[in-house]
Amino acid sequence: MTHLLIQFVLALLATGGFSVIFRIPVRRIPFCALVGAFGWITEEIAVYYYSSPVFGCFIGACTVGLLSTLASRTLKDASTIFVIPGILCLVPGLKIFNTMYALLKGDIAEAAQIGTETLLMAGAIALGLLTIGAILRVFFALARKTVTLRDKF
């Protein structure tokens, strides 16, 4: 639990750092940091229970997509602002390095293994964003339809 709490705080700070680098307005930074931190934490929890980094990335990306859409709807701002710093947290930086390291060692089998996993993780991030985007699009379309129908009758 303490471990998770420390991770949460670190992810908050890291996403906050990204938000400053990408020049997000000050009043939006707390929300961006929260989106990123929740994405990281859900990824960690998914990896802990299912021990698959690829699945973890997928769940993390779904969380980031969902939270950032909610934030952009409630705060009436472009959703890009919340998605970009949040997604950056999920990018497997250590895996990129390890792939390079294995390649330099001349261990092609290990490089191929880690490299494939890195690519799959990137794919999982993309898939997570796509899935949640498609689901939310359908959901909001249905919600709008319901509201229009209610107004009609």
Binding site: I21, P85, I87, L129
Partner: peptide
């Protein structure tokens, strides 16, 4: 340390935008 520093230059914006 290296992978922490790499994270600063990771192409997050092009990846996210290409997906969207």
């Amino acid at each position: 340390i290296i992978s922490g520093a790499i994270m600063l230059f990771v192409p997050g914006v092009p990846i996210t935008n290409s997906i969207r």
